[in-house]
Computed example of a mutant assay.
Amino acid sequence: MIAPSQICCVIEPVDMRRGLDSLSQWIQTSLGTTPCDGTAYAFSNRPKTRLKLLIWDGTGVWCCQRRLHRGSFVWPGNDDRCWMMTQAQWDWLIKGVDWQRLSAPAPAHWQV
Rank of each mutant, 00 (worst) to 15 (best):
G71R: 03
Q111C: 10
I11A: 02
C8K: 00
C82M: 06
I11P: 01
C9P: 00
G71C: 01
A106R: 12
L31M: 15
L23P: 04
W83Y: 07
G32C: 04
T39G: 03
W90P: 04
D37R: 06
S44M: 09
W83S: 02
M16E: 09
P35V: 03
C8N: 03
R46V: 12
M85C: 02
T86Y: 01
Q28F: 11
V10D: 05
E12H: 13
S22K: 14
D37M: 10
R81H: 14
P47W: 01
Q89T: 00
K48G: 05
A108Y: 12
G96K: 06
P107D: 00
V112F: 14
S24K: 04
T29G: 02
W75I: 12
L23H: 06
D98G: 15
C36P: 11
V112P: 07
C8W: 02
Q65N: 09
C36W: 01
S72R: 07
W26Q: 08
L51K: 05
A40H: 06
W92G: 03
D15A: 05
L20A: 13
W83K: 01
T49H: 12
I55Y: 15
M85N: 07
L68P: 00
T49C: 03
S22H: 12
G58C: 11
I7Q: 00
W26T: 05
M1E: 03
A42Q: 06
W99K: 01
W83P: 04
R66S: 04
L51H: 00
D57Q: 04
W62K: 05
